[in-house]
Write a protein that binds this DNA or RNA. Structure first.
Lengths: 215, 215
DNA sequence: TTACAGTCTCTAGTATGCAACAGACTTTTG
DNA sequence: CAAAAGTCTGTTGCATACTAGAGACTGTAA
């Protein structure tokens, strides 16, 4: 088994939610599970620790991490910054293919919003945000965003937003607004609209705390 | 030797510029150098590969990475976004201690600019940018910024800007401007001023290419 | 009963040996 | 001379044995 593949498999295992925060992740157990020795498992765990998904306590064990409320707020602040940046970049240099993808995505989510299909809407929201970041055409931004989103996805802090039916209609409108700005090549407006959208979503999710990211 | 310490030591070795892009970094050699076995060295190298500082070619060897021009542009785009975000956050919630640090730093760099002491000015610029990011009080932002700056520092793409004497005076004024906005709690203005500053610096460094980050 | 000391077990941390492969070099053959 | 086959060396990839420490458990003494 290639090492990258093993890392991905263990990461997926952790992200899947099969383990609750605090659960131990024994090297020996994982090695048996994936039919390899401890060495490659260990390398993967070290990487996942750097991604803040797990915590390795020396000589004690490896455990699924428990995020603090503060960390979650910080992650959303960063999310707002990165997605805003992506929207601006896409407005400036976005490729036609990426634009068309977003256009189709927004149309589909508007339909899902009307149909009250929150499951499908959640999936489309996910694809909208990723499509926007990919559309920035900046591999470094994409990589940093991936690390960020792994932490949020891991703690199941994404997609919860759209469980509120009232929010769906508003959110859908915000997506449309961002798309419009990008199509108009208004990079300043696109960034502002995207940040506003991320801020609003985070505020909804975090309960409108004053600590939510700026708008 | 603790593993984290070994990682830091090898990272410093790479960042120090002792190796040119393309130079090999043998596991065995490093193990002898630091008087440990290949295993912990190998873990550290894997991590440095994830930080984009080196490249591990399976069954061939490990080499210091050569960045593409495109990657450098992407890194500066991200730098602009992250530092802008930090400026905005600091304007909103910056602690007094951080503000005083920046105030002192700007005064010192204004003095260094007048004295034409470009060595000292370069150091102060470095501290200004880091002080600002630390002042954001967002550990996730700080961590992502650290990864970003390691890549830039590694390729010696920081501090070059201030080699141009004409730029120093302008740059110093931009620092003062950012500080003023933060002191005025104008988070929108602070972010814009900081992004403008980063953009201008990057443009100077990258030769005013159209591909430079947006302002 | 409680506190403490000793032990025991489980964990990660490290060293090392072998396997597998890439790439350079050498030899052979047309 | 050229090209191809073969060999040889150096590298990482992985498995495994051993080390060492943390923490739980137990027995004993006050």
């Amino acid at each position: 088994m290639s090492d990258e593949s093993l890392l991905d498999r263990i990461r997926e295992l952790v992200l899947s939610g099969a383990y609750a925060p605090g659960d131990p992740l024994s090297e020996i157990f994982l090695a048996q599970q994936f039919a390899v020795s401890r060495t490659p498992v260990r390398e993967s765990l070290k990487q996942l620790e750097r991604e803040s998904l797990i915590e390795i306590k020396p000589k004690v064990g490896t455990f699924v991490r428990e995020p603090t409320k503060r960390e979650i707020v910080e992650l959303f602040q960063l999310k707002e910054g990165l997605e805003g940046l992506a929207a601006g970049l896409m407005a400036r240099r976005g490729r036609t293919a990426h634009l068309e993808f977003l256009e189709q995505n927004v149309r589909a989510s508007e339909a899902a919003a009307i149909a009250r299909d929150s499951g499908r809407y959640a999936q489309l929201v996910h694809e909208f945000h990723w499509g926007l970041v990919n559309g920035s055409d900046n591999s470094k931004l994409i990589e940093h965003y991936r690390l960020l989103m792994n932490q949020l996805a891991f703690h199941r802090l994404v997609l919860k937003t759209v469980e509120n039916p009232k929010r769906i209609a508003v959110s859908s409108g915000e997506h449309r607004q961002v798309l419009q700005m990008i199509q108009d090549k208004d990079h300043f407006g696109a960034e502002a609209a995207m940040r506003n959208h991320v801020y609003a979503s985070a505020r909804e999710l975090l309960g409108g705390s004053r600590e939510a990211p700026e708008g």
